[in-house]
């Protein structure tokens, strides 16, 4: 099941040129771009691992593309996203975030029902991938 988080996730995967154009747009708006990766695709998982530092003073998107290439080399079997932060209000706030790399196979989620007192049912979603320990999911 293809997960849809962040911008553009209902579109077909962006090509590298399209990613570069989006990143350049962010940089031209003076947003700091950075890369994050994870192998826990739960939608409530907002804290992904950072790949290096946010890139504050690189005027060209080629810098991020170089890091993305490196990141794919190491974590090509996980989710990787580009995050663009805007610091102009005085704090860093996310302006744009989109997935640029996904695992070859995305097994999707299981719905778990917990039966409580009376006829009450609690629902929770669990990624099938999370059954395996971190680092060994997807591949």
């Amino acid at each position: 099941m293809r997960i849809t988080q962040g911008a553009f996730s209902f579109l077909p995967d962006l090509t590298d040129d399209q990613i570069r154009a989006q990143v350049q747009y962010c940089i031209d708006n003076k947003w700091a771009v950075s890369l994050e990766f994870t192998d826990d695709p739960h939608p409530r998982n907002t804290y992904w691992d950072m790949w290096g530092h946010p890139m504050f003073d690189n005027p060209d998107a080629a810098a991020l593309m170089m890091e993305l290439k490196e990141c794919r080399k190491v974590y090509g079997d996980r989710y990787i996203r580009v995050v663009a932060f805007d610091a102009s209000p005085g704090w860093e706030s996310v302006k744009l975030s989109f997935i640029v790399n996904r695992p070859a196979e995305e097994p999707g989620y299981r719905l778990e029902r917990q039966e409580g007192a009376g006829r009450m049912v609690r629902y929770t979603t669990k990624p099938y991938a999370a059954d395996k320990p971190a680092g060994t999911r997807y591949g």
Binding site: P59, D60, E67
Partner: peptide, 11 residues
């Protein structure tokens, strides 16, 4: 070195 190279990219 990579940090400098990234800064110089596009220039």
């Amino acid at each position: 070195t990579k940090e400098i190279l990234k800064k110089a990219m596009g220039g």
